[in-house]
């Protein structure tokens, strides 16, 4: 699947919350990288936050399950939890699937 500029009016703003170097977190980062590279090219901003380092953010961003990918823009806001191993669901969550 290639990027569709008409679908993405805004740049994707993503934020991945992880906890240090837990296996889930490592997998999530790797999986997400793969997906983004394959489907988004450079059309996104990704921030990776280690919630251990900034625990205040956990309450602010309603973080419960980790790892969590927060799609802040474009709306609607989506929270993708898990190690991003289910590519279809990740794409659906990011609004990239058909």
């Amino acid at each position: 699947m290639s990027k569709k500029p008409e679908d993405i009016k805004e740049r994707l703003k993503l934020c991945l919350f992880v906890t240090g170097a837990s296996p889930n977190s490592m997998r999530a980062i790797a999986n997400l990288k793969t997906i983004c590279d394959a489907h988004l090219g450079k059309e996104y901003d990704l921030e990776i936050v280690d919630i251990h380092q900034q625990p205040m953010l956990a309450a602010e961003q309603q973080v419960i399950a980790l790892p969590m990918l927060l799609k802040m823009a474009p709306l609607p806001i989506k929270r993708l939890i898990g190690d991003m191993s289910d590519t279809d669901k990740v794409l659906k969550g990011l609004g990239l699937s058909k």
């Binding site: 889930n24 625990p55 956990a58 973080v63 969590m68 939890i81 289910d86």
Partner: peptide, 28 residues
Amino acid sequence: DHVHIERSEIEETGEYDLDGLFIRLGYA
């Protein structure tokens, strides 16, 4: 601490844990 879980916003994409809750609670 208000924990808000909005089912419609959440997509489960694989293995996860509740570390976020632990961290929030620990911080609080």
